[in-house]
Computed example of a mutant assay.
Amino acid sequence: MRRRQQRPAGWGPAGAELPQPHYLVEPRHLAGGGDLRHITEYLRVSGWKDRTPRAGSPLCFESPDRTVRVGYAGHIIPPTWTVSSGPRTNDGTGAGWHATFGAAVPVEILAGFTDALTRPPAPHAPDVWRPLAQRDWNVGKKGHHTATSPDGSAILQYRQDEGRACWWACANATTAAGTSSRVWSAVLSDTAPLHAVEGFAAALSDPRPLLRPPGHIPFAAARQVTTTPYMVLPSQLGSWQRARLAAARATTRVKGGWALHRTRPTGHTPPDYAAPSGAGGRSR
C-alpha cells in the first residue's frame, strides 16, 4: 500500500465541528463495500418501497411497479446483493432477469446499476463498452467480449458458453508477495436492462477514488491500492449525501407507479459521496 502526502483541506473559517480523518482509495473497485445507505436511501427517495422484514434482514426494496427488487443478504456467507425482475402477470408467466453482486463491490459502483433502474433508458441505444473504452480500458474479444482495467485488476466480460450468455465482472487484488486473490465478482443475466449494465460499466471505470473512513479499507494491503489521507468535516459528509438524494428528488416524479424523470436542472452536479470535488486520479 502506498500513501501520498495529505492534500490541503482549505476548509475556510474554522467552525465548532472538527475534521475527521478519511482516505481516498484508488482504484475504486478495491475500496471495499461502503455504506449500504448509498443504495437504499436513493431507492427510497426515488419512490421504491422498503419491503425489508421487521427482523431487518435481508434488506429488500421494490420498484413502484413491483417488477424489480433490490436486496442485500448480510446474514449469509458470503453476503450478497441481489437484483431481479419478475413477471408482471398474475399467473407467473413471462421472462425475468437476475443479477448478483458480492458484498465487496463498492456501493458507488453498484449504484451505477441500481440508480439506472429508477429511470427509463436514455433515447440513445445503450453501449456498455463505450465508457470503458473512453477511460482507457482494454476492450476486445479473446473468446469473450472483454474489457480490462488499465492496471489489470478489474474485468467486465460478456460471456457466451454453450448457448448461454451473461455479463460477468470481477476485481482481483495482488499482495506484496505477488499472490493474487479474487476480491469480488458479479453475474448479470444477458437480459438485464442494457442501460443499467452501461451505468454499472461507467461507475466501474470511473477514475475517481472513493472515500472511506479508517478501518473500512479491507484491501489496503493490496499492491495496486493507493490511499490518500483526506480530512472531512461531518457537515460535508452530510452535505454530499443530501446532494445525492436531492438530485434523485429533483429528477424523479412518481406517475402511474413508475419513476419518470424530468429534465429540470438541479443547479449543480453533486459530487460522488466517495469522491469529493477536486479529488484527482493517480499521480504518476
Rank of each mutant, 00 (worst) to 15 (best):
M1D: 08
R2K: 15
R4Q: 12
R4W: 14
Q6Y: 10
P13G: 05
E17R: 04
Y23T: 00
L30Q: 02
D35A: 09
D35T: 05
D35N: 10
I39E: 04
E41F: 12
Y42S: 10
L43M: 11
L43A: 08
V45N: 04
D50Q: 10
T52M: 10
P53Y: 06
P53Q: 09
P53V: 13
A55S: 14
S57Y: 08
P58Y: 05
V68G: 00
V70Q: 03
G71N: 05
G71Q: 11
Y72C: 10
I77V: 11
T80G: 07
W81H: 04
T82A: 11
V83D: 03
V83P: 01
S84P: 03
S85A: 12
R88S: 15
T89Q: 13
N90V: 14
H98Y: 15
G102Q: 03
A103H: 11
I109G: 02
L110R: 05
A111V: 00
T114E: 06
D115P: 00
T118H: 08
R119W: 14
P120M: 06
P121Y: 07
P123H: 08
A125F: 09
D127I: 08
V128E: 03
V128M: 03
V128Q: 00
L132A: 09
A133I: 01
R135M: 02
W137N: 02
G140F: 13
G140D: 10
K142A: 13
A147P: 08
T148R: 13
P150M: 05
S153L: 05
S153F: 01
I155L: 10
I155S: 02
L156F: 02
Q157G: 07
R159G: 03
D161T: 15
E162N: 14
W167R: 02
C170V: 07
C170A: 14
T175H: 13
S181T: 12
R182K: 15
V183S: 04
W184H: 04
D190M: 01
T191C: 00
A192R: 00
P193D: 03
P193Q: 06
H195E: 07
V197P: 01
V197E: 02
A202T: 08
A203G: 09
A203K: 05
L204D: 01
S205C: 11
D206T: 10
D206K: 04
L211E: 01
G215Y: 00
I217H: 02
P218V: 03
A220M: 09
Q224S: 11
V225N: 08
V225E: 08
T228E: 11
Y230I: 05
L233E: 06
P234R: 13
S239P: 01
L245F: 10
T251R: 15
R253C: 03
R253V: 08
K255Y: 11
G256I: 03
W258P: 03
T263P: 09
T263H: 12
R264S: 14
R264Q: 13
T266R: 12
G267L: 12
G267E: 07
G267F: 06
H268I: 00
P271G: 10
A274M: 11
G278S: 10
A279D: 07
G281H: 13
S283D: 12
R284A: 14
